[in-house]
Design a protein around this nucleic acid. Sequence first.
DNA 1: GCGACAAACACGGA
DNA 2: CTCCGTGTTTGTCG
Lengths: 271, 271
Amino acid sequence: MAELPEIYNICKQMNEVLKEKVISAVEVKQEKCLNLPVEDMLSRLLHNKIQSVANKGKWIVVKLSNNENMLISLGMGGDLLYFEPDKAMTEYQIKVLFADQSGFTIKFWWFGKFHIWADEELLAEKSVKDIAIDPFDEKFSYEHFRGLFHGKKGKVKPVLLDQKKIGGIGNMYIHDILFKSKIHPDKKISEITEADFEALYQNIVSNLKEAYSKGGFSYEKDFKNQNGGYSTDEFLVGYREGKECPVCGGIIEQIKTGGNSSYICPKCQRI
Amino acid sequence: MAELPEIYNICKQMNEVLKEKVISAVEVKQEKCLNLPVEDMLSRLLHNKIQSVANKGKWIVVKLSNNENMLISLGMGGDLLYFEPDKAMTEYQIKVLFADQSGFTIKFWWFGKFHIWADEELLAEKSVKDIAIDPFDEKFSYEHFRGLFHGKKGKVKPVLLDQKKIGGIGNMYIHDILFKSKIHPDKKISEITEADFEALYQNIVSNLKEAYSKGGFSYEKDFKNQNGGYSTDEFLVGYREGKECPVCGGIIEQIKTGGNSSYICPKCQRI
DNA sequence: GCGACAAACACGGA
DNA sequence: CTCCGTGTTTGTCG
């Protein structure tokens, strides 16, 4: 469930906290989240320095001094937690330890990934190479956004969640973004007006930035084990099926949209 | 509209009539139905002998003495007509002339193809390489047929018309085949019983053989310019929308099934 | 609820 | 009414 606001926040914190730290050990309790045999992973990570951390969509990319990278995907959610010496969590699938005895643990709720790729490999690596820029990127202009829909004929929501089109949006913040824009998730792209697109663009950026400014979603923990300040009370329609629409008083519905669920006000959001 | 019965018939006749004839000229009025520049096509065909003719699904494959092949697709229908010296039709896109001044003309109604491929190329040529055996093939056993559906989850009709699964069936004979089998074209494969599959298999083979035994569909001409003897009166539900079902007296409907039309008795064929 | 992949399906062009 | 390529949608798996 960690989406751009949470991931972006974690990356910022990792940058601040981990810079220049040297990896001294990596412990893996679940090998299937690796892309390499443990031995290979270790030989590519150990004794190297953290250079910088940035997100690529919902992926966290930790760049090391030896041109290797740790790519972390939290999948459906999980905790990526910094620890001071001797303060590590006991539940984790991956633990990275630094020379100063600090480190971080990763605990996935379900499917997470911990992949190692060299800079050159990264360009060809399918998991991340096609991930589009995210709404926090300065190049994420309205023109860029609008262009994603030109000549397209499907439904809106799949495009918004398509990581090859827009990085970082998942199936949580999207509900309110669409609601605020008064667009039904199954609305055909061809039937969306220019004004709708403008509202959609604004709401994507403002909704995610709002969540980021509050430290992310309240159910998620940041790198320093703090829960975010964006609480479920702020949801307008997301996960509020059966409750009243804050705008028109209609009853919010949970509906199936393709493979996932959507929460909508059937009155405010018409197909 | 030529399907397996018509194509099979034409191939048989071509085999009887053209064997050993030597190509002396080819005239092309519509170059876009070729896969080669006219020059190349000519140099690969002229002065070579017809060796044999066989169908691959709805394609007609004319094998020449020099290991080249003429591949003819009649597309949505057309006439492929033999002519005695000086008796050629005047309307055609392609005319093949033999040394004895006999020959054949091809007139497509819409999109037809006249392609040249050497034996070796044929194996890699996408238009025909994956076309499955047809219901007249001795290897088209019930087991073979049944196996086409194992582990599949879509609708029946698309499989029956998929040339990679079964060669030669088109959207004409299929209506009655499904009707006789009491299967709705949109029926899910997973919901079809073994008895249904057996009926379907029998009806595919028998319906197409019946049409073939009568020289094909009455609206189509054979190689000798004779119309087939399988008339529209023999259709049970195909193209009979609004008429009565010959079994239950219900009203036959024309419905959309994916990209094409189907004719069904809504009472005899339930989804 | 994520991401990768494959299967099924829809559509347009020749 | 054909075949084909492409894009879209749906399902499954880890």
